[in-house]
């Protein structure tokens, strides 16, 4: 494992912790897209089917359990928690999941490395993860006054994706035959989706003003 991969995983972990902190401590999910969280839960559920069939390392298994557990508990909190669910911006969070899920499933059925159930589901999870942030970005754009924790959550997620690209570049040069076009293209597309957000995030940070995305 290289430093970029580790830093990427830690940023990913930090993003989830920031979100759980917001929801659990402040008892608010204002500005958080349930649609995006449901898509992430589906991403992890379809990607980590190998958790029961292949053992890679203790680190790998523990992280998979954390991402599965945290994504499903975040969804549970927003949908069912007595206090948290009241802060959910239902009327603003209107992105339709299936517009992302169906094209990703069709693409995975046609473009994959191997045509097996596990492999197609794994490929579907890569495509879906690439676009799963879209409902959250749309919601941010509609929300005036994005709070700090929500802004940091999206920033950390974007940083995680960026670090994975450096990880692939590193692995490409250090590991023979490390070529995974599908993973790389989906990963680059995903990272590009954050470009606009990053621009405004750094602008607000530089000027020391509250983060706001233009409508």
């Amino acid at each position: 494992m290289n430093i970029f991969r580790l830093a990427g995983d830690m940023t990913h972990l930090a993003s989830v912790l920031v979100l759980l902190l917001k929801i659990h401590t402040i008892k608010s999910c204002a500005g958080v897209s349930l649609k995006t969280q449901e898509l992430y839960a589906l991403v992890f559920a379809t990607r980590y089917l190998d958790i029961v069939t292949d053992f890679i390392s203790v680190y790998n298994t523990v992280m998979k359990l954390i991402f599965l557990g945290s994504s499903f508990s975040i969804v549970w909190y927003i949908r069912h928690h007595r206090v948290v669910r009241r802060s959910y911006d239902k009327d603003q969070d209107t992105f339709r999941h299936y517009l992302l899920m169906i094209p990703c499933m069709l693409l995975a059925l046609f473009v994959h490395e191997k045509f097996t159930f596990k492999e197609v589901m794994w490929t579907f999870s890569l495509y879906l993860e690439a676009v799963a942030i879209l409902p959250q970005l749309v919601l941010l754009q509609r929300t005036r006054n994005i709070d700090n924790l929500t802004g940091q959550y999206v920033f950390l997620l974007g940083a995680y994706r960026g670090l994975y690209i450096f990880n692939w570049i590193y692995r490409y040069f250090t590991e023979p035959h490390f070529v995974h076009w599908i993973t790389w293209i989906a990963g680059v597309v995903q990272t590009l989706l954050y470009a606009d957000f990053f621009y405004y995030y750094f602008e607000s940070w530089k000027n020391n003003v509250r983060l706001q995305l233009p409508a």
């Binding site: 494992m1 991969r5 995983d9 990913h12 190998d50 292949d54 890679i56 390392s57 680190y59 790998n60 992280m63 998979k64 991402f67 490395e113 794994w122 994975y164 990880n167 590991e175 023979p176 035959h177 490390f178 995974h180 993973t183």
Partner: peptide, 10 residues
Amino acid sequence: FSSASSHDEL
């Protein structure tokens, strides 16, 4: 660990 397996990433 440093496996060349395609699925060792999260």
